[in-house]
C-alpha cells in the first residue's frame, strides 16, 4: 500500500540483527519494548543505522513515561489495538517523506478543505457555531456536529491564548480573559481548516509559534482520563481528545504547531471503539 517493503521481527535481538542487514528507514515497535532494558540501545542503534523515525504503537497510556524516557522515540501512535490500517499508512507516509503537516493527508484525495483565518479572538465563538451549523446542514448528526464544535473551540482557544510566546519563553496571553477581544495579527493569526470525506470530519487548527512541545501534548494524553482531571490547565486538550476519534499533533518547534482532530462519521456511537487514537509528530531539525 505504501510502496515500501515491510520486515517483521520477533523481539529486540532479531530486530537488532535486521537493523544491520536492512538499514530500515522507519522502525515501528509496540509498547512492550518499553519494559525491556535493551530498548534504549536498540533505538540508539536504529538511528545510527539511518532510521529516520522510530514510531511506537501503544495500546494504552500507562507506558508513555517509559517510552519517553527512552529518548530516541520521536513519534508515538496511540490506539486501542488493532491500529487502523489507514492510520498506520498515513503515519508511515508522513514519517518517510518528512511531510507532517496538513489535514488533507487524512482525507480522501480531492476532498475540499474550507479555510478561515481568525484575525480577532472574538471570532472563535462565531466560527465554531458556523462550523456546527454547516455540518448539520450537510446531513451530519447533531452529536457529530456538537463534538466537532467542541474540538474546534478548544483547539482555537489554545492557539489564541496558549501558543503565543515571547523571546523570554513566557506566554503573554495565557492568563488573559478568554472573552477579551485580542488582535490576531501577524504570527498571532490562527488558521482553521475543515473538511469531510464521508469517512471523517477533519478539523485542523494551526498557529505560527510552534511553542507546544511534545511533553505538554503528551501531558494532555496522560490526562485523557479527564474524569479525574478537575479543572486545571490542559483540560481543554483532554476534552478535545475525548470528543474525537483521532487527535494528531504536528509540531515544528519555534515555527509552527498544527493540531488535527478527526471525527469518524461512518458508524453510530454503539459501533465505535470507546478509545480514541492520538499521534504526536515532531518535525526533524536538520
Amino acid at each position: 500500500m505504501t510502496g515500501y517493503g515491510v520486515e517483521l521481527a520477533d523481539g529486540i535481538a532479531q530486530a537488532t540483527e535486521r537493523l544491520d542487514a536492512l538499514r530500515p528507514r522507519l522502525v515501528v515497535t509496540d509498547a512492550a519494548i518499553a519494559a525491556d532494558p535493551a530498548a534504549g540501545p536498540f533505538f540508539e542503534r536504529a538511528r545510527a543505522c539511518g532510521a529516520d523515525a522510530c514510531m511506537t504503537l501503544l495500546s494504552g497510556f500507562d507506558r508513555v513515561p517509559q517510552i519517553l524516557a527512552l529518548g530516541a522515540v520521536t513519534n508515538l501512535l496511540v490506539h486501542a489495538m488493532p491500529v487502523l490500517a489507514e492510520e498506520l499508512t498515513v503515519t508511515a507516509h508522513k514519517l518517510m517523506r518528512g511531510d507532517l503537516f496538513g489535514a488533507d493527508k487524512y482525507l480522501l484525495w480531492g476532498t475540499q478543505l474550507h479555510e478561515t483565518t481568525l484575525v480577532r479572538s472574538t471570532q472563535r465563538t462565531g466560527v465554531v457555531a458556523k462550523l456546527e451549523a454547516e455540518l448539520k446542514s450537510r446531513g451530519q448528526s447533531a452529536r457529530v456536529a456538537q463534538m466537532v464544535r467542541l474540538v474546534a473551540d478548544e483547539l482555537i482557544s489554545n492557539a489564541v491564548h496558549n501558543a503565543p510566546v515571547d523571546a523570554d519563553g513566557t506566554h503573554p496571553r495565557k492568563d488573559l480573559p478568554r472573552d477579551a477581544d485580542l488582535a490576531l495579527d501577524g504570527r498571532h493569526a490562527v488558521r482553521v481548516r475543515w473538511g469531510c470525506d464521508a469517512r471523517y470530519v477533519a478539523v485542523e487548527v494551526g498557529d505560527a509559534f510552534g511553542s507546544l512541545d511534545r511533553d505538554t501534548a503528551l501531558g494532555a494524553l496522560a490526562r485523557q482520563h479527564a474524569r479525574d482531571a478537575g479543572a486545571g490547565a490542559g483540560l481543554g486538550l483532554a476534552m478535545a481528545y475525548r470528543s474525537c476519534d483521532h487527535l494528531v499533533f504536528n509540531l515544528a518547534p519555534g515555527r509552527r504547531t498544527e493540531v488535527i482532530a478527526l471525527v469518524d462519521v461512518r458508524y453510530p456511537p454503539t459501533e465505535q471503539p470507546p478509545a480514541s487514537s492520538y499521534n504526536v509528530f515532531v518535525e526533524k531539525t536538520q
Binding site: L150, S157, A231, G236
Partner: peptide, 14 residues
C-alpha cells in the same frame, strides 16, 4: 444548553 467548553466546565465546577 447546546454547548459547553472547558472554560464553561471550569465555571460550572466553581
Amino acid at each position: 444548553v447546546t454547548f459547553i467548553n472547558s472554560l464553561g466546565v471550569r465555571d460550572w465546577i466553581r
